[in-house]
Design a protein around this nucleic acid. Structure first.
Length: 425
RNA sequence: GGAGAGGUGGCCGAGUGGUCGAAGGCGCACGCCUGGAAAGUGUGUAUACCUCAAAAGGGUAUCGCGGGUUCGAAUCCCGCCUUCUCCGCCA
């Protein structure tokens, strides 16, 4: 969430910038400003009363020590009214604070100045593209057909065990999955990311910290008995490592990577676009997360983008990088690049990565700060993350693009790890 | 899951109703000392919020978290979380 100070000190700037996300913020900002003024008045009054109460208590202590019991008792009587007042003010304050945060949480993050306006994916800007599309014959099969043909991914079996959206990988596909994960992790470690293996269940505070709660609980699987959520992405546990922390200046940027399975309910999304591996309830993903100084977070975003690009290049996949327009960006992001690979049999671009700078939107809600080099000032750090990469759609594209009459060719960079260079029979 | 013992500042550790945001030590920062360093020595060293044009200063809250008792709670009571020891269960 935006900090209340940002909102109240630059109301017109915030409103103006949020228009790029097609968000009309004027009314909300007014309400926030009013509530915040109220909050400060109440806090002020409360502080004064508590100071008074502390003063009297101290006096009573002194009187007792001096043996002036009657005076002390008289002083006690004084306090009952004050106590009542303090209690009222406290209730008023916490009421106002929760109203305020209910409102603040509704404001999306401010888009960066370079984010183009627009509503739909059609308004996204092509940043660059690379790789070449394979020339497939007319009989080219989509990956779900290939999966059946070579008996490597079993969607029906997943239905039996769990339900739709939980495929079972078998044989060479299972191994390919494992090798992709280790390939992505090794690459990330070589690029300076520290490998982490976090829990895949998180508590409420963590889910709030990265912004899944309060609004998006419907997208997460929830374990009610223990009040825990299955992570929709490793971003959640990784970023929350730093919740309530103050990072020394010279430790920035912090760079982490992690493989985790990811769980998404994605309620109600069935149909042609979600066939096969295109959209799943459980999938594997390697994620990169950075905690950066505000002055260099956009450099980090570009660096992360180049890093992810190096992966799709090594996998020899045709890809393009899109700069998302304001309307297509997530609620939390300031700037996002999407990576798409071309899946040649479906003849579709599939999103395989999304890299975003959240600026201080997440760090503000999770109190993730850094200490400035000079002056010891403390500020919110910037958080960034990106998929590097999400497996299923990569696998879909690999299967479709590399199909030959003899089988599915495995790119060189993976063949060594896998111990095979073709999926046939 | 059962029984018992704990959770205090960056760390160690004292504190069982008032003068305690918290002794002492370590660490860290700056200074003195030194040719330089070590040792020694002096000072400083939490976070959030309110107040203030800003800084300085002042105020409030925070001793795992949340409630309660009390004029007053790190200290007493209740619930939760968590760590350790023992028992049980278990990949």
């Amino acid at each position: 969430m935006l900090s209340v100070r940002t909102i109240t000190e630059n109301p017109q700037m915030v409103a103006e910038r949020l228009k790029v996300k097609n968000f009309e913020a004027g009314k909300l900002i007014d309400e926030i400003t009013t509530l915040d003024t109220q909050r400060r008045h109440i806090k002020s009054a409360l502080d004064t009363s508590q100071a008074e109460s502390n003063r009297i208590s101290k006096q009573i202590g002194l009187l007792f020590r001096e043996g002036k019991k009657e005076e002390a008792d008289r002083a006690k009587e004084q306090t009952s009214e004050l106590k009542e007042k303090i209690k009222e003010l406290q209730q008023e304050l916490s009421g106002t604070e929760s109203l305020l945060s209910d409102l603040v949480v509704q404001l999306p993050n401010i888009p960066h100045g370079s984010v183009p306006p627009g509503n739909t994916p059609g308004d996204n800007k092509l940043v660059r593209e690379g790789g070449s599309r394979p020339a497939l014959g007319r009989d080219a099969l989509p990956h779900w057909e290939l999966a059946r043909k070579y008996d490597i991914i079993d969607f029906e079996l997943g239905n039996k065990i769990t339900g739709a959206g939980f495929p079972v990988y078998k044989g060479k596909a299972a191994k390919l999955q494992r090798c992709l994960i280790s390939f992505f992790l090794d690459e990330a470690v070589n690029a300076g990311y520290t490998e982490i293996m976090p829990p895949v269940l998180v508590n409420e505070d963590s889910a709030f910290g990265t912004g899944q709660l309060p609004d998006k609980e419907g997208q997460m699987y929830y374990v009610g008995l223990d009040n825990l959520y299955l992570i929709p992405t490793a971003e959640v546990p990784l970023t929350n490592i730093f919740r309530n922390e103050i990072i020394p200046f010279d430790e920035l940027p912090r760079k982490l990577t992690s493989y985790t399975p990811c769980f998404r309910r994605e309620a109600g999304s069935y149909g042609k676009d979600v066939r096969g591996l295109n959209r799943l309830h459980q999938f594997d993903k390697v994620e990169i997360v950075e905690i950066a100084h505000p002055d260099s977070s956009y450099e980090r975003l570009e660096a992360m983008t180049s890093y992810i690009e190096s992966l799709v290049v090594k996998l020899e996949l045709p890809y393009r990088i899109m700069l998302l327009c304001g309307g297509d960006m997530s609620f939390h992001a300031s700037k996002t690049y999407d990576f798409e690979v071309f899946s040649a049999a479906q003849e579709k671009w599939l999103e395989v990565s999304s890299v975003s700078n959240f600026e201080s939107f997440q760090s503000n809600r999770m109190m993730l700060r850094y200490r400035e080099k000079e002056g010891k000032k403390i500020n919110n750090a910037h958080t960034l993350n990106g998929s590097a990469l999400a497996l299923p759609r990569i696998v879909a594209a690999l299967l479709e693009n590399n199909q030959t009459p003899d089988g599915i060719r495995i790119p060189d960079v993976l063949a060594g790890r896998c111990g095979f260079d073709i999926i046939d029979s």
